[in-house]
């Protein structure tokens, strides 16, 4: 579904050039859920943004559903296949567009017919109900906003969802609801996920395999079972797993 080879992403020009992602390669199979974990600045979100076409300063090879992509230009077919959900549901929805307007626009851009029926369908899919259709973002809680953002991403029946910390701005009880929703949607629609998170427990819950990143490079790719056992091949992985487990009094 997704194949990334020797991906480099940089920002700025020499001498101020920053190499945010260095020689990253990984493959995600159809129907798989793949996690990218690491601390801030490790380049995990940058990879998603490069794939989605939000950054043009990258090199390497990215294939999505067998099609190579280039630069920051993506055609309609790409956006039909790939959609992204962002971290902050307070920032990713237009404050003056109602839920109806947000979904209407997304459906129209995807060239869908029967928009009225589909909006109701999308709202049902993400567990919001039709009563939310004419509300504005400020009338919604954080979890409800993230549901709208997910509904918008689902508008074109995508096959690959790029999830950039989809629950880190939410309370833990709301996080559980959104993670359950994402689990159900993947099952019902046969979606493939690439999920970025700094929370190892969330990735452990959602993903089959994951890549641990540090300083723009993949330190190791591991199965989720190895993560649960705390069995990293690399020192950094074990350090990260231990530190995530919580606080041990020194």
């Amino acid at each position: 579904m997704l194949n990334v080879e020797n991906l480099d992403v940089w920002f700025g020009f020499p001498p101020d050039r920053v190499d945010a992602v260095k020689q990253v390669s990984f493959t995600v199979a159809q129907g798989e859920s793949f996690g990218l974990v690491g601390e801030s600045g490790s380049g995990k979100s940058t990879i998603l943004r490069a794939i989605a076409g939000l950054i043009d300063s990258w090199s390497g090879r990215v294939d999505v559903a067998g099609q190579a992509v280039h630069g920051s230009h993506r055609d309609r077919a790409f956006y039909k296949t790939v959609q992204m959900v962002f971290q902050d549901p307070y920032a990713s929805l237009h404050p003056r567009h109602s839920v109806d307007a947000v979904l209407h626009e997304a459906l129209k851009l995807q060239g869908m017919d029967n928009i009225d029926r589909r909006i109701n369908q999308l709202l049902d899919d993400v567990g919001l109900g039709r009563g939310f259709r004419f509300r504005y973002p400020h009338q919604l809680s954080g979890g409800q906003r993230q549901r709208v953002a997910i509904a918008r991403a689902l508008a074109g029946n995508p096959r690959l969802l790029l999830l950039d910390e989809p629950t880190s701005a939410l309370d833990v009880s709301v996080q559980a609801e959104i993670l359950n929703l994402l689990t159900d949607l993947r099952r019902e629609h046969g979606l493939t996920y690439v999920m970025v998170s700094h929370d190892l427990a969330v990735v452990g819950h959602m993903c089959d395999r994951l890549a641990v990143m540090q300083h723009g490079q993949i330190v190791e790719v591991m199965e989720v079972d190895a993560l649960r056992r705390g069995a990293g091949q690399q020192d950094y992985t074990r350090h990260l797993i231990r530190a995530s487990a919580g606080y041990e009094r020194a």
Binding site: S173, G204, M206, R228
Partner: peptide
């Protein structure tokens, strides 16, 4: 109890998280 249960845990995998 509900808050504690809604946290995903590495040592206790579940299919769906209990919701508060």
């Amino acid at each position: 109890q509900g808050l504690l249960n809604s946290l995903p845990r590495l040592d206790a995998p579940v299919d769906r998280l209990p919701v508060l």
